[in-house]
């Protein structure tokens, strides 16, 4: 193997480039909201990070230029509903940067994925705003209105609804069975495919290693498959698990965050697999429609233990 990257910033940039397809798909189906959220999130992330670096008396330009704050902002912006009000993203990103990253000592020291910590915080604190998703293309003016209008905009009701995962969950709770439901979403499938392709790009460029995505997907597939073997009418089939919600974003972009993930080759397999299982378990039996953030945060806690017990074989031992 030869030297892959000249700098950490270069790796971060690769990740940001790889997100473009998925973001593009989101824009195509749901409109301008996502673009505004991303821009806003990046600005907030960089400002908050700068302020904290200033307080900690660290060189600002040096740390900002590594691109990690911007990436955290982008990942969070992609995860939240594209028509959430502006303060959602401001609070979420600030929380992610301050509590998820800087308070632990900055880049490289955080045990949890900052973007997911911000997301979990938002989901618990503002469940309404966090479950109101766009359901059709939102043009620039509409997006600007819903995001930046402090008062409740009546237009939002026409544009929004629950996600397919949410819908399926509620319908199943009401006693319906899978064959009566529409558990498919064109928009979400394309978004997931976009992130899948971006992820394959990262794999090809060796920014991420194959173990986490493979184990993560295996975890989802195996668990979902076993559940549908038990009762195919009451549990979501495998392919829908893969193509709904933030699955591919989680698989390739969030679980693979090297700082909070396991770092040994064997450990990465265990780490990814556990997240995969937990996501299906949370989606199926938990109180929230999607479980990416909680699954990743839970498994983040186990990383030091996983790393310690999965050290690779040392030469001669």
């Amino acid at each position: 193997m030869i030297k892959m990257f000249d700098s950490t910033s270069q790796m971060m940039r690769q990740v940001i480039y790889a997100l473009i397809l998925g973001i593009g798909a989101t824009y195509f189906f749901l409109g301008w909201g996502i673009i505004m959220q991303i821009i806003l999130a990046m600005i907030v992330a960089i400002v908050v990070e700068s302020v904290f670096l200033k307080i900690r008396k660290l060189p600002i330009k040096h740390a900002i230029s590594d691109g990690s704050a911007a990436l955290t902002g982008i990942l969070l912006a992609i995860s939240i509903p594209s028509i959430a009000p502006w303060w959602i993203v401001v609070i979420g990103v600030s929380f992610a940067i301050i509590f998820g990253k800087q308070l632990y000592g900055g880049l490289g020291s955080n045990p949890f994925n900052p973007a997911m910590l911000g997301y979990a915080f938002l989901l618990i604190s503002y469940p309404l705003q966090m479950s109101t998703w766009a359901i059709e293309f939102v043009n620039f003016g509409q997006a600007f209105d819903v995001i930046f209008n402090i008062n409740h905009n009546p237009m939002i009701d026409a544009l929004s609804g629950a996600t397919r995962l949410d819908d399926v969950k509620n319908q199943l709770a009401l006693g319906k069975i899978m064959s009566e439901l529409n558990a498919y979403s064109v928009a979400q499938s394309w978004v997931n495919i976009g992130f899948l392709l971006g992820g394959l790009y990262l794999l090809a460029r060796r920014v991420i290693f194959w173990q986490i995505p493979t184990a993560f997907l295996s975890g989802i597939i195996l668990t979902a498959f076993l559940l549908s073997m038990v009762d195919s009418e009451n549990y979501l089939p495998v392919q829908n698990h893969l193509m709904l919600g933030g699955t591919m974003l989680g698989v390739f972009f969030i679980a693979t965050d090297p700082v909070s993930a396991s770092t040994t080759p064997k450990g990465r397999l265990i780490y990814g697999f556990l997240i995969g299982i937990l996501i299906v378990v949370i989606r199926t039996f938990g109180g929230y429609p999607d479980g990416i953030a909680f699954a990743i945060l839970l498994v983040n806690i186990t990383v030091p233990l996983i790393d310690y017990y999965t050290q690779p074989k040392v030469f001669g031992k």
Partner: peptide
């Protein structure tokens, strides 16, 4: 820059 535990190093370590 900070270590982001990217794991490029353990891939090249001849001792594992």
């Amino acid at each position: 820059q900070s270590c982001i535990r990217c794991g490029q190093c353990n891939k090249v370590c001849p001792v594992g």
